[in-house]
Amino acid sequence: MLGAMLTLAGPAMAQDGPQRLPAVTLSLGMHKISAEVAQTPDERTIGLMHRSSMGASQGMLFVFEQAGQQCFWMKNTLLPLAIAFVADDGTIVNIDEMKPQTLDSHCSTKPVRFVLEMNSRWFDKRGIKAGAKLSGQPFKP
C-alpha cells in the first residue's frame, strides 16, 4: 500500500544535494504534518542531508522493513532537528533533539519501524511527548 504508492518516485538524488521524496499527511492531535517518506536504504541514508530549510509543518518519515533499535546521526545535515521514534500503531516511543553536522548517536529506547524528523523543538513547542499518537496511512489502528 504505502510501498506501492512510493515506489513510483524513482531513485533519490545524488548525495551531494537534497533529495525530495513523495509525502504523506500525518496527524498528531490537531497538528497536520506533510512528511516525505524515506523507505529504501539509500533514501534513509540521505534523509534530510544538505537541506538549508524546511517548512514549519514539514518533516521526513523513515520507514524500516522491521522493528529494531533505530539510531540516527546528523552528518551533512545543516538543520537542527527533533526526532521521534514511533511504534507501528503511531505511538511515539521517545523524542530527542539533534544538533546539525554532528556524529552524536540518537537512538530509540524500544524497537521501532518508524522515525519522524521535524524542525528542532517542533514537538516541545506543541507540548507533544512520548505516548502521543500519530495517525495516517502508514500506522496500523
Rank of each mutant, 00 (worst) to 15 (best):
residue 102 T to M: 15
residue 116 L to H: 01
residue 104 D to P: 07
residue 114 F to L: 08
residue 105 S to H: 12
residue 125 K to C: 04
residue 126 R to P: 05
residue 117 E to A: 02
residue 111 P to S: 10
residue 128 I to S: 06
residue 129 K to G: 11
residue 120 S to N: 12
residue 113 R to M: 12
residue 109 T to G: 12
residue 106 H to Y: 10
residue 112 V to Y: 02
residue 111 P to M: 08
residue 106 H to M: 08
residue 114 F to H: 06
residue 101 Q to N: 15
residue 104 D to Y: 14
residue 110 K to I: 06
residue 103 L to Q: 14
residue 117 E to S: 01
residue 115 V to H: 00
residue 121 R to K: 14
residue 106 H to C: 04
residue 103 L to P: 09
residue 117 E to Y: 02
residue 129 K to N: 09
residue 119 N to G: 05
residue 128 I to Y: 06
residue 121 R to L: 14
residue 114 F to G: 01
residue 107 C to L: 13
residue 118 M to E: 01
residue 101 Q to I: 11
residue 112 V to T: 02
residue 106 H to I: 04
residue 115 V to D: 00
residue 106 H to P: 07
residue 116 L to T: 08
residue 114 F to I: 07
residue 105 S to R: 15
residue 108 S to K: 02
residue 101 Q to A: 12
residue 125 K to Y: 04
residue 107 C to Y: 13
residue 130 A to F: 10
residue 118 M to S: 03
residue 103 L to F: 15
residue 122 W to A: 01
residue 130 A to E: 08
residue 119 N to I: 04
residue 129 K to A: 09
residue 124 D to T: 13
residue 108 S to Q: 02
residue 128 I to P: 04
residue 116 L to P: 02
residue 116 L to I: 10
residue 118 M to A: 04
residue 108 S to N: 04
residue 115 V to W: 00
residue 103 L to I: 11
residue 125 K to Q: 11
residue 111 P to F: 07
residue 126 R to T: 09
residue 130 A to L: 10
residue 120 S to P: 09
residue 128 I to F: 04
residue 112 V to Q: 02
residue 106 H to N: 08
residue 104 D to F: 12
residue 124 D to P: 03
residue 107 C to E: 11
residue 103 L to S: 10
residue 117 E to Q: 02
residue 116 L to K: 05
residue 127 G to R: 04
residue 127 G to N: 05
residue 127 G to E: 02
residue 119 N to E: 06
residue 118 M to K: 01
residue 118 M to D: 02
residue 110 K to F: 15
residue 106 H to L: 06
residue 117 E to R: 00
residue 126 R to L: 13
residue 109 T to R: 15
residue 122 W to D: 00
residue 111 P to K: 09
residue 118 M to T: 02
residue 113 R to W: 15
residue 122 W to H: 03
residue 119 N to T: 01
residue 121 R to C: 10
residue 128 I to R: 05
residue 120 S to V: 06
residue 122 W to L: 05
residue 103 L to Y: 15
residue 119 N to C: 02
residue 124 D to F: 12
residue 108 S to M: 07
residue 101 Q to W: 10
residue 116 L to M: 08
residue 111 P to T: 07
residue 107 C to K: 11
residue 111 P to G: 09
residue 126 R to A: 12
residue 114 F to Q: 03
residue 117 E to L: 05
residue 101 Q to Y: 09
residue 124 D to N: 11
residue 101 Q to T: 10
residue 105 S to K: 12
residue 105 S to P: 05
residue 102 T to H: 12
residue 121 R to Q: 14
residue 115 V to R: 00
residue 124 D to Q: 14
residue 114 F to K: 04
residue 122 W to N: 00
residue 105 S to D: 12
residue 109 T to L: 14
residue 114 F to C: 07
residue 118 M to Q: 06
residue 123 F to Y: 09
residue 102 T to G: 14
residue 103 L to W: 14
residue 103 L to H: 13
residue 121 R to E: 14
residue 126 R to S: 09
residue 113 R to D: 10
residue 110 K to G: 04
residue 115 V to P: 00
residue 105 S to G: 10
residue 116 L to D: 07
residue 114 F to A: 04
residue 123 F to Q: 07
residue 115 V to I: 03
residue 106 H to E: 07
residue 124 D to K: 13
residue 128 I to H: 08
residue 118 M to V: 06
residue 104 D to I: 13
residue 117 E to K: 01
residue 120 S to M: 13
